[in-house]
Design a protein around this nucleic acid. Structure first.
Lengths: 253, 253
DNA sequence: CGAGGTCTTGATATAACTCAATTTGAGTGG
DNA sequence: CCACTCAAATTGAGTTATATCAAGACCTCG
């Protein structure tokens, strides 16, 4: 990999030490010294333009990536050519964990807007994790948390109505923005309606109609990509008050 | 934990070294010596009876568990009291990974039949992973693979028909049985129809009707819990030939 | 042998999809 | 700066897959 692909403008080259995302990202819980060691293996790459891909499905796994600013979507293409979005990644989030097992990326990742990325070469990271206990732990923690949110998401897809899915999605985004110090009250969607539909397992038209309805009901205000959550508590209500539970009774079976 | 809960009948006390599940489980890729070290921290517990729980949602996370024989289902209960099954675990599979992050089990696990389990106290495992490189790697690999299969499952829930879901489910079980040396051609379901429905996001009635239909179409033979896959290739066909893709086009957005 | 749960089957309702048409907006070039 | 183009989003009408409701059959276990 040519070093000319790395640039050094100060906003981008800022070390993990000084990065405001530290508390969300891999360095979390590491000592100052250990963060410095981690920092030494991190490559800070030239920002990706909208639509540019970070890696493609089938690529050999070499590094994990952390989003520094901007946003990324990950999707897989089935053999019949359909694409399914698996995740939207915000600053501080790690990509590529699902490739560790097989050594091959099972999905593609593209920037949804101008996005800068930190690259974490995995073999070096792995070696370092061997020496730095907190790093090993943090890697496991991050993966575990991801398993968790996948499970939650599976539950959402398995038995929630379109309304509940979209409401949950918006609230989830809101809280993630807030964690990062942005407003969860008002924000811009970096993804299209069709991306949202694809991600939530809904038709575009359904998403569009729901936005309209949520607005009519005074839950949100929508202007194109700009969303304002007007009545967040009522919206939370939508996520729990699910339809008459048809679920079986997991006791034994 | 009282040592009287551990028993020593040879089938159960057989060390990792001699365990036929070695190649599916945590020891995979470890040297003989390292397996012995792992073995020393493993507790082999008294088998769980059908319906008995291994841990409950909200319990403090202390150990990972490997299924030795039998099967386990994991489910979470929402605040509105509904239960959602997240996974069925077969021999050689690890449970509890989703609790590492928070230190609390986000789901409950119960035996679907008489089941024996190996307990892997996490702090000891973590310490050992520090010394045994292959173990660290294997832990990450296992979690990564799980992320992967979760993603696949999300895709299934997000845009597949009931037919495709059930077909995929049966084929998935079949290949997992085969990995373990059992027949993938003919096997017994340890879970109820309602568990299957819950897991796949379908009503029990739909599952039942599909079993009937699959049988009528000569794809499978069903007798209560006993399933025989008659035409596996045609069944695989069902999983790809999805309905007219309504998916958006993830390019940028 | 009876009771209670599980499974199946049928009839009906409905949420969400599909298809189709229109509107809106963003980007481009004259 | 305006007209034009193309993609994205919205809106409407009609269809359909699957849920829901209801009833009966079948096991399993005590």
């Amino acid at each position: 990999m040519d070093t000319s692909t790395y640039i050094n403008i100060h906003n981008l080259s800022r070390a993990c030490n000084e990065c405001q995302l530290q508390d969300l990202c891999l360095p979390l819980g590491l000592s100052r010294g250990d963060i410095e060691r981690l920092d030494q293996i991190v490559n800070r790459r030239k920002p990706l333009q909208r639509g540019a891909s970070l890696f493609r499905q089938g690529d050999r796994f070499q590094a994990l990536y952390a989003v520094r600013s901007g946003s990324i979507k990950s999707y897989a293409t089935t053999n019949s050519g359909e694409e399914q979005i698996n995740a939207f990644h915000l600053p501080g989030e790690i990509l590529g964990l699902d490739a560790i097992g097989s050594g091959i990326h099972p999905e593609s990742s593209v920037a949804m807007e101008t996005t800068s990325i930190c690259e974490l070469p995995f073999d070096r990271l792995h070696t370092l994790a061997h020496e730095v206990d907190g790093l090993q732990r943090q890697l496991l923690r991050i993966m575990s948390r991801e398993l968790n949110s996948d499970e939650q998401f599976m539950r959402l897809l398995a038995n929630r109505s379109a309304e509940e899915r979209l409401a949950s999605f918006l609230l989830n985004l809101a809280s993630r923005f807030e964690l990062r110090g942005y407003s969860g009250q008002a924000f811009n969607l970096s993804m299209s309606r069709s991306d949202i539909g694809n991600y939530l397992g809904l038709a575009v038209e359904t998403v569009s109609r729901l936005f309209t309805r949520f607005q009519q009901e005074g839950l949100i205000e929508v202007d194109r990509k700009a969303i304002t959550l007007v009545d967040r508590s009522r919206m939370s209500g939508l996520c729990n008050l699910s339809a008459t539970a048809s679920a079986g009774e997991p006791r034994h079976g």
